[in-house]
């Protein structure tokens, strides 16, 4: 009985932490994005609300939740709201299998900083990731607006193409690690003294491409393409509902997929790696906190990289996107898979 109680308590705390990180940080990432974009564009960005605009996300949120609830005529109200639920829930649930750091002990209880360390963690990520397409397709359909419809159709086209690519891209690291559990994959990289990016550069690049496509970031942001579709599938949403779609797509999903990229390719919470020799930790003075800091640093780096691309590149056209996926990316992942299968025994020595 005691242990169940402790277990539930630990789960509760973990959920609170994840929610805090994901939704709180997600909201603040809007500010980060606006600041980064502003500095890329040689302007200061939000400066009025709070010191250097620090309270801006709160002001935005407050504004969004006190907006009038408007529903487009002749739309389908149930599907319209279901789309929002389907967008938010799976995207956040992905964080259940993200390992934030190594196991540690607190008050005699061993805690893994991962909500559910299951042996099919990676499959869970992609299963949940595929749910996003339902949300967007439903949102477009239920809004009864042509712009929304076109936007959602485009998004579905992207997911159809990059779902395959991303699945094949992650097979390389899985072969090397020999497990699908996210926690174990990191552990294997630490044991083998190797970040998988050194052996999987192709897979990493393909994964990053697919990640941009799945999250609708530039150069793949055709589902909202302001200049063509105004805001695409969210055009009929208002208030906090309108706010949540980009929050989920552009921040929560980018964060979760970046975290998975860090887990698969960049050695999770491990410090800087010299292939096959070991790890160098310039942050050793942080003691037990150092792994968590490393994890956050790597995710932040990937996130900033995505932002950098977003505010530099133009966007592709839908047919170009799908053709790249099937004609360039997918063959590349096959090549990578065969190469990995040949090279893998070196790593297992």
């Amino acid at each position: 009985m005691e242990s169940l109680f402790v277990q539930l308590l630990v789960i509760g705390i973990k959920i609170l932490v994840i929610l805090g990180v994901v939704l709180g940080l997600g909201a603040y990432l809007t500010l980060v994005e606006r600041k980064v974009a502003a500095h890329i564009q040689r302007r200061p960005g939000p400066m009025v609300v709070g010191w250097h605009g620090l309270l801006q996300p709160l002001a935005d949120g407050l504004k969004l939740i006190t907006k009038e609830d408007i529903f487009p005529r002749a739309g389908n109200r149930f599907l319209y709201n279901l789309a929002l639920v389907l967008a938010l829930v799976p995207a956040v649930l992905v964080f259940a299998v993200v390992p934030f750091g190594p196991e540690f002990e607190v008050f005699g209880v061993k805690v893994k900083p991962i909500l559910t360390d299951v042996n099919v963690g990676l499959l869970l990520v992609f299963a949940l990731g595929s749910m996003a397409v339902y949300a967007i397709a439903l949102a477009g359909w239920a809004s009864n607006s042509k712009y929304a419809l076109i936007g959602s159709m485009r998004k579905a086209g992207i997911i159809v193409s990059y779902e395959v690519v991303i699945t094949f891209a992650v097979m390389g690291p899985v072969i090397l690690a020999g497990t699908l559990s996210t926690y174990e994959i990191v552990q294997q990289q630490i044991n083998q003294k190797l970040w998988y990016i050194w052996l999987q550069p192709i897979a990493f690049v393909v994964y990053m491409f697919a990640m941009l496509a799945e999250t609708g970031r530039v150069p793949f942001d055709i589902q909202e393409a302001e200049a063509e579709l105004v805001t695409g599938f969210t055009v009929e949403y208002g208030g906090i509902k309108f706010g949540l779609f980009p929050l989920v797509e552009w921040y929560v999903e980018v964060l979760s997929l970046s975290a998975i990229a860090v887990v698969l390719f960049l050695g999770g919470w491990s410090p800087i790696n010299i292939p096959f020799l070991g790890f160098i930790d310039p942050l050793f003075f942080l003691g037990p906190l150092s792994p968590f800091v490393w994890f956050i640093l790597k995710v932040a780096l990937l996130f900033l990289f995505v932002l950098w691309l977003h505010w530099t590149l133009p966007r592709y056209r839908i047919d170009q996107i799908t053709e790249t996926a099937w004609k360039v990316m997918l063959p590349l992942t096959f090549v990578n898979l065969v190469l990995t299968a040949v090279l893998a025994p070196i790593v297992w020595r």
Binding site: I40, A225, A227, W311, P314
Partner: peptide, 11 residues
């Protein structure tokens, strides 16, 4: 901006 490169617009 229409093709998606927002930054050039501000430059």
């Amino acid at each position: 901006l229409d093709i998606g490169a927002l930054t050039i617009f501000l430059y």
